[in-house]
């Protein structure tokens, strides 16, 4: 079995299995915990709607914080969007999903995807640098933060090399690319990357908390 066979076969299968196990495990474990419900009277009677509004409003910083945090919101936006564009709209990736799901969807030209991937990787590298240099981030950063960042960057790096046929042979790079994705999948449910399922509910929870008290959060 070659490295590519391993990557495309057991590695991806095992990683996907662990990913699904971990995500379901954590989601269910969180959902089953006791949840405190307040007894005092609400000021607001449309909590679900308003909670959802907070989910949306937190995608951009409040005006008063713009000067201080806009750049990191923007950086976050760029790389998250870039990640999804590259993941979902690169021709070869869609082939992958088509092989998996049985259907495909329109894609973007390679030139566009390469540019987006470049920008995304650039932003990720900059965020890594910032995490090391910025005193607050350096102080609060843990292994979880650095590793998650690196594990997220690896598929971009290996993907670039595979696409450009640079470094090792194509099948080795492709294998490394798939292995880096496997690593990301395995790392995902056990790291802060879990925020993919907790972040929006967390906003909703806070939204309900504040709206209940008559405060637009």
């Amino acid at each position: 079995m070659t490295l590519l066979d391993f990557a495309r076969g057991p590695a991806l299968q095992g990683a996907a299995f662990i990913f699904v196990v971990g995500m379901v495990w954590r989601a269910l474990g969180l959902l089953l915990l006791h949840r405190n419900t307040p007894l005092s009277r609400n000021r607001d009677n449309h909590l679900a709607r308003h909670g959802f509004r907070t989910v949306l409003s937190r995608f951009i910083p409040a005006p008063v914080f713009e000067r201080r945090v806009s750049f990191q919101y923007v950086a976050g936006w760029i790389w998250h969007l870039g990640f999804f564009v590259v993941l979902l709209f690169f021709k070869i990736h869609v082939m992958f999903f088509q092989g998996l799901l049985g259907f495909g969807w329109p894609t973007l030209p390679n030139g566009v995807v390469v540019a987006v991937a470049g920008i995304t990787l650039g932003v990720l590298l900059w965020l890594l640098g910032r995490r090391i240099v910025n005193p607050v981030l350096r102080y609060i950063s843990t292994f979880n933060d650095y590793s998650s960042l690196v594990v997220t960057m690896l598929p971009f790096i290996t993907g670039f090399l595979a696409f450009a046929h640079y470094g090792f042979a194509y099948e080795t790079m492709l294998a490394l690319h798939i292995l880096s994705i496997s690593l990301l999948l395995v790392w995902f449910p056990f790291s802060k990357l879990i925020h993919v399922i907790t972040l929006l509910p967390s906003r909703y929870i806070l939204g309900v908390k504040f709206w209940r008290r008559g405060v637009q959060a």
Binding site: P10, F96, Q98, G99
Partner: peptide, 10 residues
């Protein structure tokens, strides 16, 4: 099947 597809994942 394209090279980039998974072979055992289902």
């Amino acid at each position: 099947a394209p090279l980039s597809t998974a072979t055992e994942l289902g």
